[in-house]
Design a binder for these strands. Structure first.
Length: 454
RNA sequence: GUGGUUGUAGCUCAGUUGGUUAGAGCACUGGAUUGUGGUUCCAGGGGUCGUGGGUUCAAAUCCCAUCUACCACCCCA
């Protein structure tokens, strides 16, 4: 019995139309990356679990896809463990590889491993799929592409500025109206310090990250549930409701965070950043957003997130600065900053706003109808000529009925069809049909190429 | 990982209180039209009713489990 084929949960096939659109996104992003001097690298789909585990928090470890060891792996597991039925413990015995969860951690591993060959500051980009064992939803998959750009080995804020410019360029080219939200981990740390809960930064940031979504009251409730004292929560309130322009907000923060050295440093960093933006006139809106927390625990400085203005969707790009990502792999004090474009979400935004350019760019431009053996030979010669001029062309591979061949051209949206039968061959010409208008004309091969090159 | 909704032809969906051979539109194949597609007309192929159990004389229909997609949490691109 034949079984119905299917693909694993949360994965997708990409058909030609989707590929053309995805390539449009990837190519646009790549072009901009290269414009700023970034170079591509690729890393393997799988990494050793030891490099992946513990980098994304407890949740992250659960969401890692693990790969079973080869061979008779189960016989090597001690009976005691099998009887205990503890998945976590057995996992370490039967799996030592996992699929990558993001591109940043493998990049850190790469940097440490190749530190002697890399020219620092190292500017690299990387466009590859990542895998998460998350429960799929709309716009959330178990396999999806990330487009990462990172600069590693430089503390300069100029790097943050360049990333903001890249964001501006990319979304301007894609015609997506967007706003860049910026925050700084040091400010968040400062806030926690000032309200007397320095040790609880993670709980506090995770809660205030939801401010926009669930509202102030629920945020306060969540903070209280996490065990933050009422007094600290009270102190937090005015900070969450700073008003005015970015520079006004920063000035107010300076006062609030006067007691925190880290906090003030963060304010200083944002001041420089925003003054750069002002003089450079970014092609994109940038604003300070104190509620921007981002879960990843390795960020230490700037936190960046981009939202599309005309579509209700999560962030389409995000990132930040990490001061010591490579430290865990034995290379301390190397600071980096990077962002990641979410290809799938950008895809969704572009389709919802119908901003994809006409897809025919990569498709066949002309089809030669196949009339039989002799005519085929005649067409084949012209076909090579056309291809040599860089025009995408094809010949129908069998002398099928006209209707079938025309229908093929029609369905593939091929704009031109060449008909070369007995009478055309005698004149050393061919009939060129415009599929859109239906017009036909008798042309020579050089006339044909001229028309197609227009 | 927790809770909810869902599933009938390649796609979008009908299918009565459980009752003969499960239907339609689009798509596909062939013909009307032997060198002319996108319009029209005619004919045809295509179904383990998501999967596995159960209740019943009888299940697409009722019950349970499971898988998928979607939604809300959690988290995130």
């Amino acid at each position: 019995m034949v079984q119905k084929p299917s693909i694993p949960k949360g994965t997708r096939d990409f058909s030609p139309v989707e590929m053309a659109r995805r390539n449009y996104i990837f190519n646009t992003i790549k072009e901009v990356f290269m414009l700023y001097g970034f170079q591509p690298i690729e890393t393997p789909s799988m990494e050793n679990l030891s490099t992946l585990m513990g980098k994304y928090g407890e949740e992250g470890d659960k969401l890692l896809f693990k790969i079973l060891n080869s061979g008779d792996f189960i016989s090597k597991v001690p009976d005691v463990l099998l009887e205990e039925k503890n998945s976590a413990k057995i996992t370490t015995k039967i799996s030592e590889k996992g699929l990558r969860y993001d591109l940043t951690v493998p990049f850190a591993r790469y940097v440490v491993q190749h530190r002697n060959d890399i020219i620092f500051p190292f500017k690299r980009y990387q466009i590859q799929p990542v895998w998460r064992a998350d429960r799929p939803q709309k716009g959330r998959y178990r396999e999806f592409y990330q487009c990462d750009v990172d600069i590693i080995g430089s503390n300069s804020l100029l790097n943050e500025v360049e990333l903001a410019q890249i964001i501006g360029d990319v979304f301007q080219r894609l015609k997506i109206k967007s706003v860049v939200k910026i925050n700084n981990r040091k400010i968040l740390a400062g806030i926690a310090e000032v309200i007397g809960e320095a040790g609880r930064i993670t709980d506090i940031t995770v809660a205030i990250d939801k401010l926009e979504k669930i509202g102030q009251d629920k945020v306060n409730l969540e903070l209280a549930e996490k065990g933050i004292p009422a007094e600290a929560i009270k102190k937090l309130q005015p900070i969450l409701h700073l008003a005015g322009t970015t520079s006004e907000k920063l000035r107010q923060l300076e006062g609030i965070l006067a007691g925190s050295e880290t906090g003030l440093k963060g304010v200083g960093e944002l001041n420089t950043l925003f003054s750069y933006f002002e003089t450079l006139q970014l092609p994109v809106e940038a604003e300070l957003d104190l509620t921007l927390a981002r879960g990843l625990n390795y960020y230490t400085g700037a936190i960046i997130e981009v939202k599309a203005k005309d579509v209700e969707i999560g962030s389409i790009c995000g990132g930040g600065r990490y001061d010591d990502l490579t430290g865990i792999f034995g290379l301390p004090d190397v600071s980096g900053v990077g962002i990641s474009f979410g290809a799938e979400r950008i895809y969704d935004v572009l389709s919802q706003l119908e901003l994809f350019p006409s897809e025919s760019l990569e498709a066949t431009k002309i089809l030669f109808v196949n009339f039989g053996k002799d005519e085929e030979l005649y067409s084949l010669g012209i076909l090579s000529e056309v291809r040599q001029k860089g025009i995408n062309a094809e010949i129908y591979p069998e002398p099928a009925k006209m209707k079938k061949q025309m229908n093929y051209a029609n369905r593939k949206q091929i704009p031109y069809v060449v008909l070369a039968g007995e009478s055309e061959i005698q004149q050393q010409k061919m009939t060129l049909k415009n599929m859109e208008t239906g017009n036909q004309q008798l042309v020579t091969s050089s006339e044909l190429i001229k028309i197609l090159s227009e």
